[in-house]
Design a binder for these strands. Structure first.
Lengths: 336, 336
DNA sequence: CTGAAAGCGCTTACAG
DNA sequence: CTGAAAGCGCTTACAG
């Protein structure tokens, strides 16, 4: 940022006006002679001139930058989504600001406002779940695409996953295995749509005739409360029913359950069956590789970026398909 | 970015000049009456005015943005480093562009140039290892801090880890356990400093009297070549020596080795001992939790950000300590 | 305590 | 094919 050359310097060096340099920079080669073009090229090359994107952004009111706000960036799910977003964006010449709300509603708001000040062209948001009103507000002024988590009563474009199907696959699988008891360890639902969808479906299924013979219970747990998980597992293990099973709501809970089970010297699937959400990188190297409901996370991210950028490029907010729901799949391994 | 209010609009609305608004925005409250201050505050609040950072950046030649270029963003090591960087930066009001070189030398260069165009204030780089000349070049024009990987013959500020100590801890530990054979599975070293440092130390140790009775060999492996790892493991298992052991150079290789060992029905530590580099989140939930050399990755990132930003804030490039080497530690678990 | 004016580095409609 | 000039939204030295 020190004594950098400006377009004016290059114009002088090349003996043309800044307008011509600008045209060159924007690839408008038709509107200049071959000679000037070559001349400019050589000057730029020689002096290593780098145009200022920020001046350009100011002028054209476009920063070619998008903000990605994740509720919790450091869980494996987010990482994969991010990968997908990054991939598509870099294909299209967009740069992303990756922001971590750290599961804080307040921080989510703060970050979004900061990004607004940075004049990003749009937002991809995986919301903490408690900022519906605020996000609807900014969606009025900026293009926004939601990933993973929906917002009620809004038509903000969203890419998510079939969560009901996920729970259904898991429960049906467990049922086929003759489970008599299924505990669903879900992170606290709050206003977070996927969690609610899964819990709702789980409860709904527990009311269906096919599953009437199964004891199905949903238990909200936080990964932070290791002792709660431990206590649960102790009681769970003691309970007399056999063919017990656990469904875990995300990779972090799976990890914790496996860890605590280990401490308690419980074996999976010997002591209970288990199916987790999210196919984490370590799921298949366990002594007993974990059966999981795999989400197409990369695709979710990629698709969200695509939605946003296509909205950015052509001004039409056609939104033929504002809600995109991707299917999930059950990967059967040895814990069931 | 649509019909946003500008400072001019607010000035008119508040009945003052843009200069005064600007002063207000920059917190120069001493130089205005309490009345104007309050007035401006209320106008801004009322209209939800958000100043444009990009106009500001252009004017003051500072973007409060730094670029973080990682050789491979999606390995656990990078993730943790990133966490540390992000933490410090957000404390100081800096935003980061996180860029993934995808282990491509070419891409690393391209990305750095793109960021230069974005007018970032500085760089934190975890280099692919093949751009020494190029990076020295940009370090001439921008503040740069290197993380994890050093660059030869330069005094670019760097934060890294004591890799020789890491290898030493591992080998000594294995020696105490009476290992007769130690294979070090390192990712291909190239010009990547930590890898070279470990390999060098490993070779050096193999020449020391204390370890003369141990067969020590270093084998470069790529995570992508699963079959190579498999073939190695087959031969390794067949070899007659007992008390064999493996040191793996990073979390991804550890994962692969464990996976392949599983496929081959080899048990760790029964068939061979193992110590890995990097304390990944899954290391302790394995049937036999993995012994590892843990790196203070978060701290490496945090420290690098601190170095860069302190350089950015005070113009002094005092550089009392251009090279910062953090200690590593051995976490003994059940694979040894 | 406050404003007029210049300037940061670009782009673009207009004129030639 | 090319340039002069205005303007994007700020900041700041200068003057009052």
């Amino acid at each position: 940022m020190k004594n950098k050359l400006s377009i004016k310097d290059i114009a002088e060096l090349a003996g043309v006006s800044t307008a011509t340099i600008s045209r060159y920079l924007n690839g408008k080669y038709q509107s200049m002679s071959v000679d000037t073009r070559k001349n400019i090229a050589s000057i730029i090359e020689k002096f290593g001139y780098q145009p200022s994107n920020i001046a350009r952004s100011l002028r054209i009111s476009e920063s070619k930058t998008i903000a990605v706000i994740m509720a919790d960036i450091f869980n494996p799910y987010s990482m994969d989504v991010l990968k997908g977003i990054e991939e598509f964006c870099s294909e299209k010449g967009y740069t992303i600001f990756i922001c971590d709300a750290k599961n804080s509603t307040q921080r989510e708001r703060t970050i979004i406002e900061e990004m607004t000040v940075k004049r990003v062209d749009g937002f991809i948001i995986n919301t903490t779940g408690e900022n519906d009103y605020f996000i609807k507000g900014i969606a009025l002024e900026y293009p926004v695409v939601l990933v993973g988590r929906k917002i009620k009563n809004s038509n903000i474009p969203t890419v998510s996953v079939d969560n009901a199907q996920g729970i259904r696959l898991a429960v049906e699988h467990l049922n086929e295995l003759k489970c008599k008891k299924i505990i669903f360890l879900s992170p606290p639902a709050g206003h977070i749509s996927p969690r609610n969808e899964r819990i709702t479906e789980f409860k709904k299924m527990s009311g269906e005739d096919n599953f009437a013979h199964i004891e199905m219970k949903c238990l909200p747990v936080s990964v932070l409360e290791e002792n709660v998980i431990k206590q649960f597992l102790i009681n769970f293990h003691r309970s007399d029913s056999d063919m017990k099973s656990i469904i875990t709501g995300n990779g972090q809970i799976s990890l914790k359950v496996i860890q605590v089970a280990k401490e308690l010297k419980l074996s999976i699937p010997e002591d209970f069956l288990m199916v987790g959400f999210d196919d984490t990188d370590w799921a298949h190297i366990l002594r007993k590789p974990l059966t999981v409901v795999a989400q197409p996370t990369y695709k979710v991210g990629y698709s969200a970026a695509k939605k946003l950028i296509s909205q950015l490029m052509k001004e039409n907010d056609a939104d033929e398909n504002y809600l995109e729901i991707l299917p999930v799949s059950l990967i059967k391994r040895e814990t069931t």
